[in-house]
């Protein structure tokens, strides 16, 4: 294994992780305001689809991204409205959204493009790749950052901006407070539901951007079920990252790595069924290890406490 191999893995990891990062951040902000949002999968999928639709009719990348964002916001708003104002079960609403978006994208794929499964066309415009003039020439770094798009860079920036927003600004502080104790916020006169609704709705921007990366990032096409579980992986990543934007950065890096490992191993003699399963198996393993790690820590603490001198009880009974 040589250096160029490693830089290829790193480069592919970065490209694989950004869509997951977007939806993980969406999951994180929703859980910060105590809303269980599992609809990222569907939102991402339908945004990816409409990005391609706009692209086909306008051949304008910018408009396509805007469409993806707009669709993400609209669908998330509907989901948020059902959960927050109509008090529907979040899991039911989320699953309904995901199933419906999956069906809708297949139907519209046929209705608009008269095709099943895959749609691609040479006239479609991908998001332009940026190769910064200075960095491009730096040996390893240049290759690691090779062919990333502006939307990829934006994902990393979003994580940092969200961190600053949540932990340093007044508005972010209020959102966190709402998540910690909604009743207390209510009793202090905060319109909790409005904040929650806006948060879920605006999380659609992130899911939408994630969707646009799927259909216009590394490749420019729409495949049925192109999100392939990334919205669910995001829930695991959010869990591992403890709903913290920087934690999300780390956990989606891990999932990006697993995915790129899967792709790279496709070129070897390992069966493709196994290589494509890698990210999903990794998700389950990561969650198990996360729990096991917590238990080991507790066991360690107990054995440490046991070693302490036994204490005398004040008065005998």
């Amino acid at each position: 294994m040589n250096l160029s191999y490693l830089t290829t893995v790193a480069n592919s990891t970065l490209r694989m992780m950004t869509p997951v990062l977007y939806v993980t951040l969406a999951a994180a902000v929703c859980s910060k305001v105590k809303i269980l949002n599992i609809s990222m999968e569907g939102v991402m999928l339908i945004s990816a689809f409409f990005a391609i639709v706009t692209n086909w009719f306008t051949h304008n990348v910018f408009l396509s991204i805007i469409t993806a964002i707009a669709i993400g916001v609209v669908v998330s708003a509907v989901v948020g409205f059902c959960i927050i104002y109509l008090k529907a079960q979040p899991v039911v609403v989320g699953m309904a959204c995901n199933t419906m978006m999956s069906g809708l994208s297949i139907y519209l794929l046929y209705a608009i493009f008269h095709t099943r499964g895959v749609f691609t066309d040479p006239s479609l415009q991908g998001i332009p790749k940026i190769n910064l003039p200075f960095i491009k020439d730096i040996p390893v770094l240049g290759q690691v950052l090779y062919n990333l798009t502006i939307v990829d860079y934006l994902a990393f920036a979003s994580a940092i901006v969200l961190y600053i927003f949540l932990y340093k600004t007044v508005l972010g502080y209020r959102l966190r407070a709402i998540g910690i104790n909604p009743q207390a916020a209510q009793s202090l006169g905060t319109k909790v539901e409005r904040y929650q609704f806006l948060t879920v709705t605006l999380s659609g921007i992130l899911s939408g951007l994630g969707g646009s990366l799927l259909s216009m990032g590394s490749v420019t096409l729409f495949i049925q079920n192109i999100s392939s579980g990334r919205g669910y992986i995001a829930m695991a990543a959010n869990n591992l990252g403890r709903s913290h934007p920087l934690g999300a950065l780390l956990s989606s890096f891990f999932f990006g790595f697993c995915q790129s490992l899967g792709y790279i191993l496709q070129g070897t003699s390992i069966k493709s069924q196994i290589t494509t399963a890698i990210p999903y198996v990794a998700t389950i393993l990561a969650l198990i290890l996360f729990t096991v790690y917590g238990r080991i820590q507790k066991a360690r603490r107990i054995s440490r406490l046991r070693k302490e001198e036994p204490r005398e009880t004040p008065a005998s009974l």
Binding site: T169, V170, R174, R176, I180, A184, T190
Partner: peptide
């Protein structure tokens, strides 16, 4: 008590009337 358990005492006290520096807390 209507408190935000994992925030600091000061953060709890100023809720809704935060002391700002621009948009920052």
């Amino acid at each position: 008590f209507m408190l935000f358990d994992t925030l600091s005492a000061a953060e709890n006290i100023v809720y809704q009337n935060e002391i700002r520096k621009g948009i920052f807390f």
